[in-house]
Design a protein around this nucleic acid. Structure first.
Lengths: 188, 188
DNA sequence: TAAAGACTAGACAAGTTTGTCTATTTTGTG
DNA sequence: CACAAAATAGACAAACTTGTCTAGTCTTTA
């Protein structure tokens, strides 16, 4: 990928995620990156196209991060512990692969582009689907009820951390899910 | 409250929630409500002031709705069932007090105003706190671990419904929480 | 009925937005 | 070196943003 193109995507992602998409204009991205306007429009058709590239970049990063965090788990309980400890570490700005925590970029973006049919909303939906599939892959014993529970609690923990500032909510999830897992492991 | 003031708040809330705050300009609110610009600025100091009034309106509505849904519960298990059935009904546009579902207005707004110190973000945080306190009041037996679990799952269900279109996630929460409640009721 | 307050219509200011266009300079490569 | 591709700076267009101002009209109430 072209150096300038990469710089534009990195800068956009950084600004969009630290602020919000609608509050960051093209001119601010150009000023921060030091790239000329014509260069941006030779690489990207429109602002939306740049937004989608930034979402793609974050998606790739996030899935890669998730896989490193879950690599080698050998039980569903360990998966839960690893996942939610990783989330807490993210909330506390200790995950360098993800940068400082400003909520979930995909939830934030879907909130800004309320129209369900927009490319941006559809991308966010797809991202959540792929995160779910990734977690599923790391389950020692497939348990779709547990997977649902994990995915619901994951979103709840992120939202509680972001909106309410409760960074400990990920750890609370471990306790709840362990309880749940113990009681359903052999009944589903 | 003045009739025009109320009309402006109602129109703003409707447009902000159905779209997003940053994508709706003052002029659109004026056009939709049929109110003159000077009237708006005699009732509200600024757009931010109007936004805060819309948030306040939604907050009042939501708490009132929540209380009608939880009124008369006589066990924590019933509280869980009532709450999450109500959420599912909201996701499926069947709660007239809340209007059509477009996610949580407070999560959406906090996503748009990323700065934690902004009045808007602080209001959203406060809203979540008051929802938690309201649910707590309806617990037959106070159980803060269960309350945490409910609040995390509530946010997760809303996010899954909004971003992923999974309207059944609220019902899934009932199953998970019943399990949890049964196993912790006498141990906490 | 008269005066005061509320409201309207819309021009206007000053700034922002995305995207286009031109003219020039830099960079990479055969 | 020479030429082509890439990048630059920034003017410009057209539309939009929030907020102010003016002048006139409607509405309430004493």
């Amino acid at each position: 990928m072209s150096k300038k193109r990469k710089l534009l995507i990195d800068t956009s992602l950084d600004l969009f995620y630290s602020n919000s998409i609608n509050s960051i204009g093209i001119n601010e991205i150009l000023k921060t990156s030091g790239v000329a306007k014509q260069t941006l429009y030779s690489h990207f058709e429109s602002k939306e196209s740049l937004i989608l590239s930034a979402l793609q970049q974050r998606h790739t990063n996030f899935i890669e991060w998730l896989k490193t965090k879950l690599d080698g788990v050998d039980s569903n309980e360990q998966l839960i512990i690893r996942l939610f400890n990783a989330l807490e570490s993210w909330f506390r700005n200790s995950e360098s692969m993800l940068g400082d925590f400003h909520g979930c970029f995909f939830i934030n973006s879907a909130s800004e582009f309320n129209n369900k049919q927009s490319n941006i909303s559809l991308f966010c939906k797809q991202h959540k689907h792929e995160v779910r599939e990734t977690i599923k892959q790391y389950m020692s014993q497939e348990n779709l009820f547990l997977l649902d529970a994990i995915c619901i609690m994951k979103e709840g923990a992120i939202t509680n951390a972001y909106v309410s500032g409760d960074y400990s909510s990920a750890i609370k999830c471990i306790r709840i899910l362990k309880q749940y897992e113990n009681n359903t492991a052999f009944t589903d």
